[in-house]
Amino acid sequence: MTHSHTLECRHIERQSGTAFRLKRGQILRVIDPMGEQVSDLMAFREDDLDEVLSSGRTIDYANTIYVTTGHILYSNRSNPMFTILEDQVGRHDFLLTPCSPETFQIIYGNHEPHPSCFMNLVNNLAPFGIAPDRIPTTFNIFMNVVVAPDGELTIGPPLSKAGQFIELRAEMDLIAGVTACSAEMSNNHSFKPIDIEIRE
């Protein structure tokens, strides 16, 4: 693997998010500094926001729901958006949507205000002209979703240990949003930060 140098580091506080531009060929490293913390990733083509990261296309072409090192994450137009260069954890989710205010009402029965990945993505992507309804299923880094033979889903603690990361190379100029997930079940009932590095 080629050596890369870091252009930018961002620390995403617990239950928050960020958004940024990522140029083709740049590498996004998503790090779990404390362990057992999920991070939702969403990306849009910078010069055409109708082209967006697609769970369905990616799973279809990879023929697995568990993408890892060497897999390509595709757009809704079947163009490569990211290539996974290195994956120290090996278990991520691309089935479930980012947690939203409704998630906490419907799944958790919680009607109090609650931070969510969806709203963190909405708020951080808004300055780039991305409307809420444009945000589809996110790539849920470090999220551990197990599928039983009957199709039932179990969300287990993330397998990520402190300091482990995944590296994705941008295959086009992108606008990306990244969160530190706010759903109790996804993070073994403890909220922690996420670190990202943009590398070249």
Rank of each mutant, 00 (worst) to 15 (best):
K192N: 13
P136Q: 06
D40A: 07
L49E: 05
L41S: 00
D47A: 12
V89A: 04
I155H: 02
V146R: 11
P132D: 07
I155R: 01
M1Y: 05
R10I: 07
V122R: 00
Q88V: 02
I130D: 00
P127I: 10
S190V: 12
L41F: 07
N187K: 03
A148Y: 03
Q88P: 03
I65H: 06
E8D: 09
S160I: 04
P157K: 07
K192Y: 13
R57H: 08
H5N: 09
I106Y: 12
T97Y: 06
M143R: 12
I72W: 07
R45I: 02
Y61F: 12
S160T: 10
E86K: 11
S75K: 04
R199P: 01
R24K: 10
I175K: 00
R21S: 11
H5T: 04
N79E: 05
Q37D: 02
N144L: 12
P149G: 11
F20M: 12
T97D: 13
H92K: 09
R29G: 08
C117S: 06
V30S: 05
P127R: 13
Q15L: 15
D48Q: 10
R29P: 14
I84Y: 13
L174T: 04
P158Q: 06
G56D: 15
T179C: 15
I106N: 15
E197I: 09
A131I: 05
E86A: 07
E46L: 02
N76G: 12
L174W: 07
P115K: 05
V146N: 15
H11N: 13
P127K: 09
S78V: 07
G17P: 00
N110L: 13
G56K: 07
H114F: 06
I65W: 02
P80Y: 08
V146E: 14
G35W: 04
T68S: 15
S182Q: 01
R199H: 05
M185G: 08
G56E: 15
E86W: 05
I135C: 01
M185T: 09
K192D: 10
E167I: 05
I84K: 04
A131E: 13
E13N: 09
A162K: 11
G156K: 12
I194K: 01
K192F: 15
A131C: 10
G35Q: 04
M119E: 15
N144R: 03
N188S: 11
T138D: 10
G56N: 15
M81N: 01
K161V: 14
L95A: 04
T154D: 15
S186H: 15
Q105V: 14
A176I: 10
I107T: 08
P101H: 01
R21D: 12
